[in-house]
Simulated scan of single mutants.
Amino acid sequence: MPARSAKAPERFGLDRLATPIGTVLLVTDADGALCALDWDDYDHRMRELLRLHHGAVDLVDRPAPTLMKTALSAYFEGDLDQLLTIEWRIAGTPFQQKVWTALAKIPAGTTMSYGALAARIEMPKAIRAVGHANGSNPISVVLPCHRLIGANGSLVKYGGGLERKRWLLRHEGVEI
């Protein structure tokens, strides 16, 4: 009987970018599309999300596309619409994809409750599931999970920490 071979790990590039609130890790695929963005102090969580979405992964040091890094730097310098120029490609369940696509449509400078996002995707009772999908978002900042807040207007969970969430919202003109 022939030996079964395991699927080879999917290979991604890993780069870093300094920002005013910490270093971000940029994970890109072979085509240069962003597949993950997380904070260097949450490297373990990022790797776990990649594993959950892609199976075995191999991260190799490789520069992210210059346009991507320029767009992210411009965002942190105040040109908020630059996030819209970043090409991204992520794996997830159809429900996660629906939530993440809806996240991308929340304009800079605005917030939305989890319930409002659930209603927007025409699943008003899926508030907790929206929260779970939001927490599994592999592309923090670019898919602006920081723009989701509690129904009462309060800051709630953010994978990069509430201080970063507060900074991002203030940077975009939202006072919380």
Rank of each mutant, 00 (worst) to 15 (best):
Ile139Asp: 03
Val156Asp: 04
Phe76Gly: 00
Leu83Pro: 06
Ile86Leu: 09
Arg11Ala: 10
Ile21Trp: 01
Arg128Met: 13
His44Asn: 10
Arg16Pro: 04
Gln82Asn: 11
Asp43Ile: 03
Val130Gln: 07
Leu50Asp: 01
Trp100Glu: 05
Leu14Met: 12
Leu117Ala: 01
Lys7Ala: 15
Leu25Asn: 07
Lys125Asp: 09
Trp167Asp: 02
Thr111Gly: 07
Arg47Glu: 11
Ile139Met: 08
Lys157Phe: 14
Ile127His: 10
Leu168Thr: 02
Thr110Tyr: 08
Glu10Gln: 14
Lys125Gln: 14
Asp43His: 09
Ala151Lys: 15
Glu122Arg: 15
Asn134Cys: 13
Ala151Gln: 15
Leu17Ala: 04
Gly135His: 04
Glu172Leu: 09
Ala3Arg: 10
Val57Glu: 03
His146Tyr: 15
Lys157Ala: 12
Leu155Cys: 08
Gly173Asn: 01
His146Gln: 11
Gly22His: 06
Ile121Glu: 06
Phe12Pro: 00
Asn134Glu: 13
Ala33Arg: 15
Asp81Ala: 14
Ala56Gly: 11
Pro65Gln: 09
Arg47Ile: 00
Pro9Val: 07
Thr70His: 12
Ile176Arg: 13
Gly153Arg: 09
Thr111Tyr: 03
His171Asn: 10
Leu155Pro: 01
Met123Gln: 15
Leu52Cys: 12
Lys165Glu: 04
His146Ala: 02
Leu50Gln: 03
Gly22Pro: 01
